[in-house]
């Protein structure tokens, strides 16, 4: 590990946002992975004698259902816990796909410039003319609904966020002396990109990846709320909100709980991304060190 990498890691570890985000994200990941052991009930199990129970701490609550039950008597806590699996699965796979597609196009576009850059730039322009939700809805109409289609839609929308930001960074890095030196030393273009340019933009890629995970959680929630993501009986946070919305007057908890779950998860990824940006951004770092 180079001293520079170590210094960067140390800066991250000292950043309260990074650590808070990391802890919160780890908590959600543990809950999602351990769902079968943590959840008190099967998320589909219906108890029609105990529908719309309030949480256990309020009057009429039942300790068997710590956060109460929904209209079909299903345990809200268990559904929340299993919902974390859907959210994290979509967040991780979709953000990875968007990152790969966007970063590769950004590297090609920024490094080679010329007509390749022009074409990729115009593609980004066209994509940016759509509000993301509209493009996602149109893609899901064309491809059909389903959670994997939602992932594909997020990849097909999210790549522009990576491409735009990383491309401008690549253009800066490309002009540095060590990149020219690598070419003079006989590196091929691919070697130069992978060994010299990519490491320089990697902090930015990681930051954007974290933020994209948060965006993916939101998009999945929107799409499952509208009924275009998971099957209606799968426990996903968006589905839970849509189901509980009809009984919001009697049982506001059914809506508040999944909203809180989405909030905590998105906040984790946002804090992490935000903290990483502040800890790793070369401009911010140098300005802080020069002070």
């Amino acid at each position: 590990m180079s001293p520079r990498t170590r210094a960067a890691l140390l800066r991250c570890a000292r950043n309260p946002r990074v650590m808070a985000g990391l802890l919160l994200a780890l908590a959600v990941i543990v809950v999602a992975l351990g769902a079968p052991w943590i959840a008190p009930h099967d998320p589909q199990e219906q108890d029609l004698l105990n529908t719309l129970l309030p949480p256990m701490w309020s009057a009429g609550g039942d300790p068997a259902f710590p956060l109460g039950t929904d209209t079909l008597g299903r345990c809200i806590l268990s559904r929340l816990i299993y919902g974390a699996r859907v959210a994290l699965y979509v967040a991780f796979v979709a953000a990875t796909g968007a990152m790969l597609l966007g970063t590769v196009l950004a590297l090609i576009s920024g490094y080679f410039g010329g007509w390749v850059d022009w074409i990729i730039g115009r593609l980004v322009d066209i994509w940016m003319a759509f509000p993301p939700v509209i493009l996602a809805l149109i893609l899901l109409v064309g491809m059909g609904a389903g959670v994997n289609k939602v992932i594909l839609a997020i990849v097909l929308i999210g790549w522009t966020r990576f491409c735009r930001v990383i491309r401008s960074e690549v253009i800066v890095v490309r002009r540095r002396d060590y990149v020219a030196a690598a070419r003079l030393a006989g590196f091929t273009h691919v070697q130069t990109i992978v060994k010299e340019v990519l490491p320089a933009v990697l902090p930015l890629v990681i930051t954007l990846f974290s933020l994209e995970m948060g965006i993916a959680v939101i998009v999945e929630a929107i799409m499952s709320f509208v009924g275009l993501s998971v099957e209606p009986d799968v426990a996903a946070w968006g589905v839970m909100i849509a189901d509980a919305r009809t009984t919001m007057n009697q049982a506001p908890w059914g809506v508040v709980m999944p909203v809180a779950a989405i909030f905590a998860t998105v906040l984790a990824f946002n804090l992490l991304g935000d903290g990483l940006r502040r800890a790793l951004d070369p401009r911010l770092v140098t300005s802080r060190e020069s002070l």
Partner: peptide
């Protein structure tokens, strides 16, 4: 601001209605 940004518009809509 970090907290506000972690809740998308449609969830604000639901919370405001509540």
């Amino acid at each position: 601001t970090s907290g506000l940004m972690a809740i998308p518009e449609f969830l604000w809509a639901i919370l405001l209605i509540l």
